[in-house]
Design a protein around this nucleic acid. Sequence first.
DNA 1: GCTTTGTAGATTGTCAACAATCTGCAACAT
DNA 2: ATGTTGCAGATTGTTGACAATCTACAAAGC
Lengths: 245, 245
Amino acid sequence: MTKAAAPAGPHSAIELLRSQSLTSLVQQELERRILAGGILPGDKLVEQDVATELNVSRGPVRETFRALEQAGLVVTEKNRGVFVRKISLQEADEIYEVRAGLDELIGRLAAERATPADLAELRTLVAEMRVAGKAKDVNAYYPLNIRFHDRLAQIAGNGTLLAAYRRLINELHLYRRQTLERGADSFHTSTRQHADIVDAVASRDGVRAGECLYQHAVKSRSRLHEALERDETLPPPALVRETTP
Amino acid sequence: MTKAAAPAGPHSAIELLRSQSLTSLVQQELERRILAGGILPGDKLVEQDVATELNVSRGPVRETFRALEQAGLVVTEKNRGVFVRKISLQEADEIYEVRAGLDELIGRLAAERATPADLAELRTLVAEMRVAGKAKDVNAYYPLNIRFHDRLAQIAGNGTLLAAYRRLINELHLYRRQTLERGADSFHTSTRQHADIVDAVASRDGVRAGECLYQHAVKSRSRLHEALERDETLPPPALVRETTP
DNA sequence: GCTTTGTAGATTGTCAACAATCTGCAACAT
DNA sequence: ATGTTGCAGATTGTTGACAATCTACAAAGC
């Protein structure tokens, strides 16, 4: 034999460029920016601009656009361009509905398959969320919430399920970006629900875990609706309040 | 105003080419061929060949490949080419598991939202399946089965759910192609289950409809496993006998 | 004043050419 | 015989150029 498999360590550049094409790199970068909020729903993506900024030609960028379109992150209008997808209230509603269904399944499976280490990790996350909740720190709470549910989806041990779940989460993320991140989720009930979920999983009660998660997702949707209705009665939300005082 | 909107009737070519790009056309065509079995799992797709056959250049073909990859129908190996995705038994198992979860949700929603016309249509489909089942006509039964479940997913009235469901069905379709279409589903129980589903939906019993569908999906998976195990006891399916006698 | 028409610039859709990589086979050495 | 080395052809990855379409703005007509 020739040599041990390169341990992707020091000369990572050569390994990276050997396995990843420009298209996939561009895709990762654009995905990151869209989900991080650097680009907002409705924004137009201009091929040449993206290409110039990332130092590639338009080809890989166009390929990326087709992938992102299939992933549901952008929409293409022929001869007009591609735009970051805007998610309507109805669509968000639909997504929440499906998410509830998947979460129920996740709960059932996770209860069967969670290891003690998994449970400990979940408990740690819940504890961290409790702290962030008490401090009313949205910026800390939101990512923890995401991580908790994603971890649970991983624990369910079904890659197809995980992929489907993540796609929905991405789309909901898009929706949040669009509605100005006004998710002042009522921390208290939310954290308690998370604790209940972990307990159900720990006691191997798949049905109850599934029910908890289903209800949890449904409640999220309700909170969304309440927040929306509250806003509709208010004047259009002051868009940017970045005035340095 | 100038003119009434063109009623996509006579000069459909101009309307088609105005809204659809070559990429989307190529994508539709390739998707059709893959799902129809013209191209089989594991087959390699050569850019130039596809381009030549469809009279386009490699650009649109490459874009199509990225879309199909994201759709889970092909996999790309850098500098080696794209191949129609092969679905392992484990993956098929995962997909069945998720499908069961989605089907349960479909049942619940369909029970809430089905119109009398919907119910009549479902009953017609079940009747046709019964006929095909009695005649042991797989080629008639299989598409009817697909149509039944797809219709039900439509009736659930959730576009996101429908899209996720169809994606799974496509992947399972791929798996069937690969396992030589040996699905001699036991028609009798299958048809009875379908009738039960429609009854539950008709009586607006969402929970029961969901349970029926969940069980139905689980049974499908069991049948798959039985069929597979039956085969594994047989000699390896004489793939290629590389010794020239 | 308002709508329509025409033109210039920008942007997308498509194509063909070039560079990098892989595959298969033959020649060679052990 | 077995395994290695080195081409030659084929295939993919990427780029730049050209044609078709759209957008914006100014000029002309009512």
